[in-house]
Design a protein around this nucleic acid. Structure first.
Lengths: 140, 140
DNA sequence: CCGGATCCGTTTCGATACTG
DNA sequence: CAGTATCGAAACGGATCCGG
């Protein structure tokens, strides 16, 4: 007799567990990175500039991130058929995580990250984060 | 006509992209967390204490993490049938990422993280990280 | 018991074609 | 431009089995 498909039990209240429920996949944090560091903000930006995400998967991740209030979507005032995605306050607060991920990668796997940027992240972390946040705030 | 299955193209050299190739799934960072913070270190520890990972998936993740030199495996000197997993230097260097994830979760989603611990992570981050590393080093 | 491997139904992914 | 629709391939989750 076959089991009637139990739909993945909910996770514990452990903070990391909950965070990974939102971000624990191959693409979500890449979209956040695109928004935070690469100046990408439209569907086609992500599609072309990401590392080859499929369009259906992209749409699904954007929905999920928006549903979790990590990103916000609104239509471009200058072009009605275009939407602009933007990090929410909750989304920009992921900056420390991404910065640490860059530092870790630079140390342990070879990357194409400019050493000067990585050094600035590591040696002047608070200032780097403040800059990220300021750029985000002023680009409203 | 059907496409003959192109096997997932490699990713760019962007550090976050590369990191997520190793860690961008629902379980890998949970195993790292178990090792770093929860004192779990055997297969059955993860199986029972994790949030319900299936045994085949767990075995697959452990292989992947070991292959990436993030964890190390050796047999328990006191019980020949048991293996002990441990974070490598590369693995313990993920501590900042996990700490930031905890801080982010505590701020933006409700968790069961003890507020005192979170405050210590946030307000005395360097010291907290040094403690994590020291505990890891001395528990060799 | 411990650390997996195997089998199998279900779900998700990836690639591409198509649409408003 | 911003997504759906479709479909085969791969991964997952659960249960069970197995060598030491």
């Amino acid at each position: 007799m076959t089991t009637p498909a139990a739909p993945r039990q909910p996770r514990s209240g452990c903070p990391i567990s909950i965070a990974l429920e939102l971000l624990g996949d191959a693409w979500s944090l890449l979209i956040v990175r695109d928004l935070m560091f690469k100046g990408r903000r439209t569907y086609n930006d992500f599609l072309a500039g990401g590392e080859g995400i499929a369009s259906n998967v992209l749409a699904s991740r954007l929905r999920k991130l928006e549903g979790a209030n990590i990103i916000e979507k609104r239509s471009d005032p200058r072009d009605a058929r275009r939407y602009i995605y933007r990090l929410s306050p909750k989304g920009i607060d992921l900056a420390p995580v991404l910065v640490d991920l860059v530092i870790w990668s630079a140390r342990h796997v070879q990357t194409d990250a400019p050493p000067a940027v990585v050094r600035s992240m590591r040696e002047d972390r608070e200032r780097f984060l403040a800059d990220v946040r300021r750029r985000w705030r002023t680009s409203a």
